[in-house]
Structures are given as C-alpha cells and as structure tokens.
Design a protein around this nucleic acid. Sequence first.
DNA 1: CCTATTTACTTGTATATACAAACATTAAAC
DNA 2: GTTTAATGTTTGTATATACAAGTAAATAGG
Lengths: 155, 155
Amino acid sequence: MYIQTKCFYFVFIMKASGSRFSKCLYFSANAFARKVEKLAADSWKKINLTPSHAYLLMTVIEEPGVQPGKLADEMQLTPSTITRLIEKMEAHKLVVRTTEGKVTNVYPTPKANQLYPQMKNCRDEFYTSCISFLGVEESKRMAQNINKLNDKLSR
Amino acid sequence: MYIQTKCFYFVFIMKASGSRFSKCLYFSANAFARKVEKLAADSWKKINLTPSHAYLLMTVIEEPGVQPGKLADEMQLTPSTITRLIEKMEAHKLVVRTTEGKVTNVYPTPKANQLYPQMKNCRDEFYTSCISFLGVEESKRMAQNINKLNDKLSR
DNA sequence: CCTATTTACTTGTATATACAAACATTAAAC
DNA sequence: GTTTAATGTTTGTATATACAAGTAAATAGG
C-alpha cells in the first residue's frame, strides 16, 4: 500500500505536473473533467447508462414532470443538449414527454422507476470512488472550490 | 465594486452551488472545464485558432519536429485526437508532417512562425483573464490541485 | 384586438474528443 | 531468418456538447 502511494507520487512527478502545460488551467481543467467523466462512466456502465443520462433520469424520477429548462439549469447544460438527452431516453422507454402549450413535462416510465434503486447504488459507488482517489476532504473541498469558480465564471 | 462582489455571492448561492448537483464532482468538473474552455476560446479567437490548435502549434514551434505521441502526452489527449488536430492544421498550412519509418515529425511552417508573437499574446491574455476571474493565488492553487488529482486519476 | 416581444423548446449543423481496430515499421525470440 | 510482439500513427465510427436559427405559445403595448 505504501509502495502504491509512492508509485502514485512518481506518476505525479512524471505526468500532468511535469507536462509543459501543468500550470495551465485550460489543460488541467479539461483533463480533470475527462478523468472524472471516466470514473462516473464506469460506475454507471453496469446499468448501461451514461452519467448524463443517469443524472437526468434520477432528477426526473425525483421530480416527476420536471421541465427541460429546469433540467438544463440544474445540470448546467444547454437546453438543446437536454432535448437530445431526453430524446434518447425516450427511445429507451425510460421517460415520456407531454407537451401542453409551450410547456413540456418529463415523466419517468415504470421501467425507470424500477431502475431507481440500482441507480442510487451507482451514484454511491461513484462518490466512493471519487473519495478513494481523492480523499474525502479533498474531494469535497474540490467540488466546493470548483463551484465557487464556476459561479464566478457564470456569464 | 463591493456591490459587484456581493452580486457574485448572490449568484453563487443561486447557481451552481445551489443546484441539485453542486456537491457532485461530475457536474462541477465538467461545467468548470467548459467555462475555462470558453475563456480560452475567446482569447484565441482573434487569430482564429481554437485553444487546442493554438497550444499544439505553440508546442510545435517551440519543439520543431516533435512527434505526435509526445504531443499526446503533453496535451493529455489521445493519439487519435492529435492526428486529427494535426490534419486540420496541415490543411491550414500551419504545420507539415514528414514520416520516416514509423516515426512522424511535425514542423511549423513559416506562416506559423510568423504567428508566434501573436499567439504568445493570446496566451498571456488567457492567463490574465483566468486571474481576473479567479484571483492570482486561487487560480494558481486550483491548477496545482487539479494536477495533483489528475495524477492520482491517471490510469 | 392585433402586432411585437419574450419564453420554452427543438432542429440543423458543427466541434472536440474518444475507443477500437487497422497499418506499418521496427525489435525480439527462437 | 521467419514468426511474434511491441511501437507509433492513422482511420472508422460513435459520443457529448454547443451555437444559431427555427417554431410555437404566451404575454404586453398600443
């Protein structure tokens, strides 16, 4: 275990931090996002959902009838991206849409509701693996910090 | 100025940090990357380069003959992505490739070299705008922290 | 009441990136 | 030496996302 830690440290010296761009937020932020993405993707793979789909679906289950606009806000994605996600999940019979006037409501299907407990497990597993990589304190602080910066960067 | 700070704080409370997923690294990391991306894109827009293209080109100028594999390492992108980037920049007559055996070398064109001073300006501008949004200390620490985590997450 | 603006969502299109498989070249093993 | 494995790069294909423009409903001004 100690050796593994040292090994991490070695990699640390050689990899990102040793790269030409280590001090550049552009690279670090993007690389970090891709790595967290991968961690999340692994956690949800066993029920065949991408993280975006999974989080969208969980929101729909927890707030049946939620509107696409609100989903866009919460997930910090553009409305068009949300439309695409919903389309796919509709094709997989996990949500249904009803449109009344200019308002659209999204509801989970029974199939989705059945999946919910497993989805919560996946979410827990993802958090656990974040924590095991980054440490419980570090990973919490990181999310907080990033959020703070995100808000400063909100146009 | 004080009011603006308070305003930031208000947004902070309402936006990312208030969202259902604020404590989830998956969302924060992705949103953060997209925002930094946008900042970078703005900085390089005036010379019509995307940040990836710009950084790749600067590397090629500073290390003429650099190989795709090394670029992939430094930029933390996959070799296939590097190939695609190089193809595009070749189409724009900014780099040329020579292949000898299994090794490929990438060189800047005169056009690229001419562009170099402007590119450095754009880079500076990007750093400046990071700093102006996030603060000089915060933005340095952030990049460091992210790198540390990146290295821990390196497969 | 009718036009103009705003709101909510969708569509067309483009970008960046990745993974897996294909190649082609060199190195190793026997 | 011929087969096998490793290395470096490219191609085929798929994903996620965005922006800009389009549509359709609701609301506001005159």
